[in-house]
Write a protein that binds this DNA or RNA. Structure first.
Lengths: 158, 158
DNA sequence: ATTAATTCTGAGTGAGTTACTCGGATTAAG
DNA sequence: CTTAATCCGAGTAACTCACTCAGAATTAAT
């Protein structure tokens, strides 16, 4: 029911790749794309978000590329994913700063589902905050691969 | 980033409504629709899933309607939401019976993001399993309302 | 200087999903 | 027989996703 889009999936893979080369050398998108098996031009879009959020730094021109702007152990998955998937709660029910306006139902005094989504959100956020980039690097042996067949969303089964 | 669609949101609201009338009387969709402020014909689709999953029972004809097939305290939100949102993990990375085939990357020996999604899934499932219908009924005072403005997805902010 | 390698940027696109609506068939109560 | 309800399948406008395309800007190496 809940799914991570390829933005999140690919973006995390890019971050893991960059973590492997942290403090070693710059990584170009074509290199990342080949080693991780992901479409370059799509990655350009994703990494722009990561750069805007100051999670990665870039160097332009020949022999340019990207690198993490912080050590992997200081990068939490909550940050990475909220940047990639574009977090924002249009329904103020779930806005983080509770001061925001209420949703349509809430204004009328009874938002029966609010506590449900709130607890779900808490669970998601706290687990993602508890996982840092270096944990993922450690568990994954690095063997460059080719791209699998056409991608789709990754659905999380309940 | 992760969002609950109106299927999940509306479906939960319907279940809460039915829980309020559990063992009292049948509830017709038009009644539910008016009291909860939701489009009838859309609810027809949703409640079909709930019935197929044996979460609710129906009676046809005049004075027909729906009722829960189990007491609210025996209905977990994990059940309700998986029925409504249609759970299935196309990427076997996340299939519940671990015996399934691996995803494209996994076959090649390195699925670096697997442990991340697995931990996220665990968190989501366990929180939803821990919440039963009657909890939501208790916290929400019942005041029939009209439909708010046009609905959209409910996004969960990170 | 020129070329090649790279980041950057904006626009476009085909396929799929979402959130519904429409039209009607079936069933049962009064 | 009429009315109230569940059932069922199809259709649709708007949106999102997962990309691609085309090209401008920047820099290193030759």
């Amino acid at each position: 029911m809940m799914h991570i889009s390829t933005k999140g999936e690919y973006g995390v893979r890019v971050m893991i790749d960059l973590a492997r080369y942290y403090n070693k050398k710059l990584r170009s998108l074509t290199d990342i794309s080949q080693d991780e098996g992901l479409p370059v031009q799509y990655l350009e879009q994703l990494i722009k978000k990561l750069r805007d959020a100051d999670l990665v730094m870039s160097a332009r021109g020949a022999h340019g590329g990207y690198q993490l702007s912080r050590p992997p152990e200081e990068i939490r998955m909550s940050e990475v994913l909220s940047v990639l998937e574009g977090a924002l709660a249009p329904y103020a029910c779930l806005s983080v700063n509770g001061a925001e306006a209420a949703c349509g139902w809430d204004k009328l005094g009874s938002c029966s589902t609010r506590s449900l989504w709130a607890r779900l959100q808490d669970a998601i956020i706290s687990t993602l905050e508890s996982i840092t980039l270096n944990e993922l690097v450690d568990t994954a042996p690095h063997t460059p691969i080719r791209m699998p067949e056409q991608q789709q969303n990754i659905k999380i089964q309940l």
